[in-house]
Design a protein around this nucleic acid. Sequence first.
DNA 1: CTGCCGATGAACATCGTTGTCATCTAGTGC
DNA 2: GCACTAGATGACAACGATGTTCATCGGCAG
Lengths: 136, 136
Amino acid sequence: MAVQADHALRDAGLRATRQRRTVLAALRDRSDAVTAQDLHGELRAAGEPVGLTTVYRTLTALADADFLDVFVREGEQAFRLCGDQHHHHLVCEVCGKVEELEADQVEQWVREVAGRRGYQVTGHRADIFGVCGECS
Amino acid sequence: MAVQADHALRDAGLRATRQRRTVLAALRDRSDAVTAQDLHGELRAAGEPVGLTTVYRTLTALADADFLDVFVREGEQAFRLCGDQHHHHLVCEVCGKVEELEADQVEQWVREVAGRRGYQVTGHRADIFGVCGECS
DNA sequence: CTGCCGATGAACATCGTTGTCATCTAGTGC
DNA sequence: GCACTAGATGACAACGATGTTCATCGGCAG
């Protein structure tokens, strides 16, 4: 696993440091999105000495490399490990759990609309917010 | 027009002040999204004495009343006057122009997915980013 | 017209995030 | 192994967006 993490980091053009491995491992263990500050707090509480700046930089770097999804809520950004394929999200607003979705219907809609209006598509996003079965 | 603006404000439970009319008028004149700071700067430059705090408060209040759409880009939020019906967006990343879309396909997809996974839907968003005909 | 209460705005406080810089270390070449 | 160097770290400062305060102003109901 540590090896996998190293490869992932290497692929992103990043060195495999203890701090980065720690951050990646922490992200692997959860299906909800975390804030840099929260993650930093948890790592510190777990006895992992990692600087706040480093957590921010690591998360940003991983997000830039498309390893993480970024959610913006209430003025702060939360990160979450994600698949490497294009996908959409189903987010539980109570427990914060995130499920990834494929959506051919949406992809098709995007192509249709953009084509009809003469736009060249550079990207799109489609997310659903709700309350999952367990939380309701 | 001023009367319309007053009604709009009244409907939102807000008093029709000179500053709010000014902000609303400025928003009416553009189809791209503006930042509170930018709008404040422009109003000041145009000789309209409006406080930054007031611009923030007015935009937030109008957004809460669903008069404005809120976009988040690069850590700051941009506001844009929008129709009162639920809609999606087609955004030109070059000129910033925003077109509103209706999308039954998307609505249907949302219901399907949520239903299948046992979620109660509280909201969703679907936006397309691209380059419009004029800009490409 | 008058009074009340919401609205304003300048100054200040806060909070998430990014920049700085001296120090450290992963990973390469020997 | 070993030394070297570019990249990484982290304590701290700085920054920009937004929240708060409070004295003052003005919309609008009566």
